[in-house]
Design a binder for these strands. Structure first.
Lengths: 145, 145
DNA sequence: TTGATTGCAAATATTTTGCAGGCAT
DNA sequence: ATGCCTGCAAAATATTTGCAATCAA
């Protein structure tokens, strides 16, 4: 099931003209399977377990290709902005667990129109908005008790 | 008028136990007066015009103190997260011009409750949210024509 | 006077680039 | 066979730390 996503991503990368190498497969697999935010070093450490010859540089370069292809997005948090997560399809917003890094998307409903109006009051032509919720996921809530 | 903010900030820094030096006054002045996002290097370049002896390191350290004191916040954007801007008082959200970096706060109304509910559906206890609008300010819209 | 702050230099951390060899196409 | 991709080393960037001199309190 998650492998479907991996195959879909590899196909998209190939269509974009990138070559499907072993390091790429491993890195794509890690990011496709994870429901947690991952930074390049974290991806690198996981990748090394599968193939110790993989270098950090390759992780950076592969992440860049995946970003270009729209498969993953950089996620910004108060304490850092080097983590990545699947892109959403359509206009969704992130819900992030500040304890463990787990993340989910949710539908933003029609907030866009409201934001347009807000911006207009200040003379801005709003073309994008950015919404993230920070909280504690169910598992981390249990762990705290 | 903007000087009032500067004096207010210096007072708060002093109350926090920090010493009010000449470099600090200059850096506080720059950040208090700006209605644009500024990164440490930009602050440094402006500060040098007033006192060429100021070092970049001092800018970093002063920004840190101002952040600790809650006077400024780090602002995250798709292409970078090293810019700073006045903190808002109360729960407000940023409206940023992607062309020139000009920024404004606006009231978020009672979105918090809505976000709590959204997060609850995924088992999250939402404790914070982050909303930013990106657009083009009136001046930049004129410039484009 | 006293110790926090400054500014220089150096250290660290993070990300990018150059290049020779390897591998997908 | 061609040229993109990899992994190493090195470079470039961004930020932090050590330390002696300076300056606010």
């Amino acid at each position: 099931m998650t492998d479907l996503l991996k195959i879909e991503w590899l196909t998209q990368l190939q269509n974009k003209g990138f070559r499907i190498t072993n390091p790429m497969k491993i890195i794509v697999d890690i990011l496709a399977k994870s429901n947690h935010l991952l930074n390049p070093t974290e991806v690198y450490l996981q990748a090394k377990k599968i193939n110790p010859r993989i270098g950090l540089v390759t992780v950076y370069r592969t992440i860049e290709k995946m970003e270009q292809t729209g498969l993953i997005d950089r996620v910004h948090m108060p304490d850092g902005c080097q983590s990545f997560f699947h892109s959403s399809d359509g206009h969704q917003h992130l819900l992030i667990c500040t304890a463990c890094g787990k993340a989910n998307y949710f539908e933003g409903e029609n907030l866009g129109q409201f934001f347009q109006k807000m911006g207009g009051q200040f003379g801005y032509d709003v073309h994008d908005h950015w919404l993230q919720l920070f909280g504690m996921c169910d598992e981390c809530q249990k762990g705290k008790e």
